[in-house]
Protein backbone atom coordinates (compact mmCIF):
# COMPACT_ATOMS: atom_id res chain seq x y z
CA UNK A 1 0.00 0.00 0.00
CA UNK A 2 2.91 2.33 0.72
CA UNK A 3 4.66 1.64 -2.60
CA UNK A 4 2.58 4.03 -4.77
CA UNK A 5 3.17 6.80 -2.25
CA UNK A 6 6.88 6.12 -2.22
CA UNK A 7 7.08 6.07 -6.01
CA UNK A 8 5.04 9.29 -6.22
CA UNK A 9 7.23 11.14 -3.75
CA UNK A 10 10.37 9.87 -5.49
CA UNK A 11 9.11 11.07 -8.84
CA UNK A 12 8.23 14.43 -7.35
CA UNK A 13 11.72 14.81 -5.88
CA UNK A 14 13.34 13.83 -9.17
CA UNK A 15 11.21 16.26 -11.11
CA UNK A 16 12.02 18.99 -8.57
CA UNK A 17 15.70 18.29 -8.98
CA UNK A 18 15.45 18.24 -12.76
CA UNK A 19 13.45 21.44 -12.83
CA UNK A 20 15.80 23.12 -10.39
CA UNK A 21 18.81 22.30 -12.50
CA UNK A 22 17.29 22.84 -15.89
CA UNK A 23 15.78 26.30 -15.51
CA UNK A 24 17.26 29.67 -14.94
CA UNK A 25 16.87 31.14 -11.48
CA UNK A 26 13.94 33.44 -10.81
CA UNK A 27 14.55 37.01 -9.84
CA UNK A 28 12.77 37.58 -6.51
CA UNK A 29 14.71 40.28 -4.70
CA UNK A 30 12.61 43.38 -3.90
CA UNK A 31 9.48 41.77 -5.29
CA UNK A 32 6.04 41.71 -3.72
CA UNK A 33 3.84 38.65 -4.02
CA UNK A 34 0.10 38.83 -3.44
CA UNK A 35 -2.12 35.81 -3.57
CA UNK A 36 -4.65 33.50 -2.05
CA UNK A 37 -4.14 30.52 0.18
CA UNK A 38 -6.23 27.62 1.37
CA UNK A 39 -5.75 24.39 3.18
CA UNK A 40 -6.54 22.27 6.15
CA UNK A 41 -5.51 22.46 9.78
CA UNK A 42 -5.46 19.71 12.37
CA UNK A 43 -5.71 20.67 16.01
CA UNK A 44 -4.62 19.02 19.23
CA UNK A 45 -5.14 20.44 22.72
CA UNK A 46 -1.99 20.23 24.84
CA UNK A 47 -3.30 19.90 28.39
CA UNK A 48 -1.76 22.08 31.06
CA UNK A 49 -4.24 21.43 33.87
CA UNK A 50 -7.37 19.39 34.13
CA UNK A 51 -10.61 20.75 35.48
CA UNK A 52 -13.83 19.00 36.30
CA UNK A 53 -17.15 20.29 37.48
CA UNK A 54 -17.72 17.01 39.26
CA UNK A 55 -15.44 16.40 42.21
CA UNK A 56 -14.52 12.84 43.04
CA UNK A 57 -15.15 11.68 46.58
CA UNK A 58 -14.60 8.31 48.25
CA UNK A 59 -18.19 7.56 47.22
CA UNK A 60 -17.49 8.08 43.48
CA UNK A 61 -17.50 5.30 40.92
CA UNK A 62 -14.81 7.08 38.88
CA UNK A 63 -11.27 7.66 40.12
CA UNK A 64 -11.28 10.90 38.20
CA UNK A 65 -13.34 12.71 35.63
CA UNK A 66 -10.50 13.41 33.18
CA UNK A 67 -11.59 14.06 29.64
CA UNK A 68 -10.38 11.80 26.85
CA UNK A 69 -9.36 13.89 23.85
CA UNK A 70 -9.40 12.80 20.27
CA UNK A 71 -6.19 12.73 18.26
CA UNK A 72 -4.82 15.34 15.89
CA UNK A 73 -6.34 13.94 12.72
CA UNK A 74 -9.82 13.73 14.24
CA UNK A 75 -9.80 17.51 14.64
CA UNK A 76 -9.68 18.87 11.10
CA UNK A 77 -10.73 22.32 9.97
CA UNK A 78 -10.46 24.56 6.95
CA UNK A 79 -8.22 27.54 6.21
CA UNK A 80 -8.61 30.17 3.55
CA UNK A 81 -7.18 33.61 3.16
CA UNK A 82 -4.71 35.89 1.45
CA UNK A 83 -0.97 35.85 0.93
CA UNK A 84 1.40 38.79 1.08
CA UNK A 85 5.14 38.53 0.94
CA UNK A 86 8.11 40.71 0.25
CA UNK A 87 11.52 39.35 -0.69
CA UNK A 88 14.29 41.33 0.97
CA UNK A 89 16.89 39.22 -0.80
CA UNK A 90 16.68 36.44 -3.32
CA UNK A 91 16.50 33.91 -0.47
CA UNK A 92 14.98 35.83 2.44
CA UNK A 93 11.46 37.14 2.54
CA UNK A 94 8.79 38.17 5.00
CA UNK A 95 5.44 36.49 4.61
CA UNK A 96 2.00 37.21 5.97
CA UNK A 97 -1.00 35.03 5.26
CA UNK A 98 -4.02 36.61 6.98
CA UNK A 99 -6.75 34.04 6.86
CA UNK A 100 -9.82 32.50 8.40
CA UNK A 101 -9.21 29.25 10.19
CA UNK A 102 -11.58 26.78 11.83
CA UNK A 103 -10.13 24.79 14.69
CA UNK A 104 -11.95 21.81 16.10
CA UNK A 105 -11.33 19.56 19.06
CA UNK A 106 -13.37 16.82 20.67
CA UNK A 107 -13.31 15.12 24.03
CA UNK A 108 -15.32 12.50 25.84
CA UNK A 109 -16.21 11.89 29.44
CA UNK A 110 -18.60 9.64 31.29
CA UNK A 111 -20.45 9.27 34.56
CA UNK A 112 -22.01 6.40 36.41
CA UNK A 113 -24.57 6.08 39.18
CA UNK A 114 -26.08 3.05 40.81
CA UNK A 115 -29.76 3.76 41.17
CA UNK A 116 -31.95 0.95 42.43
CA UNK A 117 -35.03 3.18 42.47
CA UNK A 118 -35.00 3.83 38.73
CA UNK A 119 -33.78 0.39 37.89
CA UNK A 120 -30.12 -0.32 38.32
CA UNK A 121 -27.07 1.23 36.80
CA UNK A 122 -27.16 4.60 35.09
CA UNK A 123 -24.41 5.35 32.59
CA UNK A 124 -23.90 8.57 30.69
CA UNK A 125 -21.21 9.10 28.09
CA UNK A 126 -20.73 12.47 26.44
CA UNK A 127 -18.98 13.50 23.27
CA UNK A 128 -18.16 17.21 23.32
CA UNK A 129 -17.40 18.81 19.94
CA UNK A 130 -15.96 22.29 19.89
CA UNK A 131 -15.33 24.59 16.96
CA UNK A 132 -13.40 27.85 17.06
CA UNK A 133 -13.40 30.26 14.14
CA UNK A 134 -10.35 32.49 14.04
CA UNK A 135 -8.94 35.30 12.04
CA UNK A 136 -5.21 34.83 12.09
CA UNK A 137 -2.54 37.22 11.04
CA UNK A 138 0.88 35.60 10.90
CA UNK A 139 4.18 37.32 10.27
CA UNK A 140 6.79 34.82 9.15
CA UNK A 141 10.39 35.04 8.09
CA UNK A 142 10.98 32.71 5.17
CA UNK A 143 14.35 31.39 4.08
CA UNK A 144 14.52 29.78 0.68
CA UNK A 145 17.21 27.25 -0.10
CA UNK A 146 17.29 27.99 -3.77
CA UNK A 147 16.80 30.90 -6.12
CA UNK A 148 15.62 28.59 -8.87
CA UNK A 149 12.06 27.89 -9.89
CA UNK A 150 11.65 25.03 -7.53
CA UNK A 151 12.61 26.37 -4.17
CA UNK A 152 12.21 24.58 -0.87
CA UNK A 153 11.98 26.85 2.14
CA UNK A 154 11.62 26.99 5.88
CA UNK A 155 9.73 29.68 7.73
CA UNK A 156 9.09 30.76 11.30
CA UNK A 157 7.40 33.59 13.13
CA UNK A 158 4.42 34.62 15.19
CA UNK A 159 0.75 34.78 14.48
CA UNK A 160 -1.93 36.95 16.04
CA UNK A 161 -5.14 34.95 16.27
CA UNK A 162 -8.50 36.48 17.05
CA UNK A 163 -11.26 34.03 17.88
CA UNK A 164 -14.42 35.68 16.59
CA UNK A 165 -16.84 32.81 17.14
CA UNK A 166 -16.78 29.51 18.97
CA UNK A 167 -19.46 26.94 19.53
CA UNK A 168 -19.97 23.52 20.97
CA UNK A 169 -22.39 20.65 20.78
CA UNK A 170 -22.70 17.62 23.02
CA UNK A 171 -23.83 14.12 22.08
CA UNK A 172 -24.96 11.68 24.73
CA UNK A 173 -25.60 7.98 24.95
CA UNK A 174 -26.17 5.59 27.80
CA UNK A 175 -23.22 3.24 27.35
CA UNK A 176 -19.69 3.78 28.55
CA UNK A 177 -17.70 2.31 25.69
CA UNK A 178 -15.53 5.26 24.62
CA UNK A 179 -17.70 5.70 21.58
CA UNK A 180 -20.68 7.94 20.95
CA UNK A 181 -22.33 7.47 17.59
CA UNK A 182 -23.47 10.90 16.46
CA UNK A 183 -26.14 9.40 14.24
CA UNK A 184 -27.96 7.69 17.08
CA UNK A 185 -26.93 9.71 20.11
CA UNK A 186 -29.04 12.42 21.69
CA UNK A 187 -27.57 15.79 20.81
CA UNK A 188 -27.74 19.14 22.48
CA UNK A 189 -28.29 22.39 20.65
CA UNK A 190 -25.27 24.14 19.22
CA UNK A 191 -24.29 26.74 21.81
CA UNK A 192 -21.97 29.65 21.45
CA UNK A 193 -18.92 29.51 23.72
CA UNK A 194 -17.00 32.50 22.39
CA UNK A 195 -17.08 34.26 25.75
CA UNK A 196 -15.24 31.35 27.37
CA UNK A 197 -12.16 31.95 25.21
CA UNK A 198 -9.13 34.10 25.38
CA UNK A 199 -10.23 35.93 22.28
CA UNK A 200 -6.74 37.06 21.37
CA UNK A 201 -3.92 34.57 21.18
CA UNK A 202 -0.38 34.52 19.91
CA UNK A 203 0.90 31.45 18.13
CA UNK A 204 4.49 30.47 17.53
CA UNK A 205 4.66 29.20 13.98
CA UNK A 206 7.28 27.15 12.22
CA UNK A 207 7.18 25.12 9.07
CA UNK A 208 8.57 24.23 5.71
CA UNK A 209 7.42 23.93 2.16
CA UNK A 210 8.26 24.24 -1.44
CA UNK A 211 7.51 26.95 -4.01
CA UNK A 212 7.39 26.90 -7.76
CA UNK A 213 8.07 30.26 -9.40
CA UNK A 214 7.19 31.44 -12.86
CA UNK A 215 7.40 34.96 -14.19
CA UNK A 216 3.64 35.44 -13.99
CA UNK A 217 2.80 33.49 -10.84
CA UNK A 218 4.08 31.24 -8.10
CA UNK A 219 2.63 28.30 -6.19
CA UNK A 220 3.72 27.03 -2.85
CA UNK A 221 2.81 24.06 -0.72
CA UNK A 222 3.68 24.44 2.91
CA UNK A 223 3.17 22.77 6.24
CA UNK A 224 3.27 24.64 9.53
CA UNK A 225 3.18 23.69 13.15
CA UNK A 226 1.49 26.36 15.26
CA UNK A 227 1.42 26.44 19.04
CA UNK A 228 -0.77 28.85 21.01
CA UNK A 229 1.29 30.73 23.56
CA UNK A 230 -1.80 31.67 25.55
CA UNK A 231 -4.21 29.11 26.91
CA UNK A 232 -7.36 28.81 24.87
CA UNK A 233 -9.88 29.10 27.71
CA UNK A 234 -10.05 32.33 29.69
CA UNK A 235 -9.50 31.27 33.33
CA UNK A 236 -11.88 33.97 34.53
CA UNK A 237 -14.65 32.66 32.30
CA UNK A 238 -13.99 28.94 32.57
CA UNK A 239 -16.98 28.30 34.84
CA UNK A 240 -19.22 31.07 33.55
CA UNK A 241 -21.56 28.71 31.73
CA UNK A 242 -22.34 30.87 28.71
CA UNK A 243 -23.35 27.71 26.89
CA UNK A 244 -25.83 26.64 29.55
CA UNK A 245 -24.13 23.24 29.45
CA UNK A 246 -22.01 23.42 32.58
CA UNK A 247 -24.43 22.08 35.15
CA UNK A 248 -26.61 20.20 32.72
CA UNK A 249 -23.78 18.22 31.15
CA UNK A 250 -21.24 18.60 33.98
CA UNK A 251 -18.91 20.32 31.58
CA UNK A 252 -16.02 22.63 32.20
CA UNK A 253 -13.06 22.91 29.89
CA UNK A 254 -9.48 22.14 30.80
CA UNK A 255 -6.57 24.51 30.70
CA UNK A 256 -4.84 23.81 27.41
CA UNK A 257 -2.92 25.35 24.56
CA UNK A 258 -3.80 24.42 21.03
CA UNK A 259 -1.26 22.85 18.71
CA UNK A 260 -2.20 23.02 15.06
CA UNK A 261 -0.66 21.40 12.02
CA UNK A 262 -1.56 23.21 8.82
CA UNK A 263 -1.14 22.14 5.23
CA UNK A 264 -1.63 25.03 2.85
CA UNK A 265 -1.57 25.61 -0.86
CA UNK A 266 -0.85 29.17 -1.99
CA UNK A 267 -1.20 30.77 -5.39
CA UNK A 268 0.52 34.15 -5.72
CA UNK A 269 1.44 36.69 -8.30
CA UNK A 270 4.29 39.22 -8.32
CA UNK A 271 2.87 42.73 -8.33
CA UNK A 272 5.91 44.61 -9.57
CA UNK A 273 9.38 43.53 -10.20
CA UNK A 274 11.17 46.32 -8.44
CA UNK A 275 10.21 49.27 -6.29
Amino acid sequence: MKLPWFVGILMLLISVQVEAQSRKHQYRKDRYFFGVTMGSGFTQPIIQERFSLMETTPQSANENFDKKYGNLFQHGGGIYGLHFSFAFTKLFSVVSQPCFQTQRYNYMNNYHWSDTITGGEVYKEFLHRQKINNIRIPILARMDFSARRWSPFIQAGLSADIAYFASKQIYTDNQVDRSVDRKTAVSSNVSEMTAHLNRFNVYAVGGAGISYYREQFAISLSGNIRYGLRTTIDPFERYSDYTGMASEYLDVQDKFNLLTMDIMLTLMVPIHKKW
Partner: peptide, 12 residues
Protein backbone atom coordinates in the same frame (compact mmCIF):
# COMPACT_ATOMS: atom_id res chain seq x y z
CA UNK B 1 -14.32 31.54 40.07
CA UNK B 2 -15.38 27.90 40.21
CA UNK B 3 -18.38 25.60 40.19
CA UNK B 4 -18.08 22.21 41.88
CA UNK B 5 -20.50 19.35 42.36
CA UNK B 6 -19.51 16.62 44.79
CA UNK B 7 -20.08 13.16 43.40
CA UNK B 8 -21.65 10.11 45.01
CA UNK B 9 -22.30 7.10 42.82
CA UNK B 10 -25.21 6.03 44.99
CA UNK B 11 -28.12 7.31 42.98
CA UNK B 12 -30.57 6.60 45.77
Amino acid sequence: PFVKIYDDQNGN
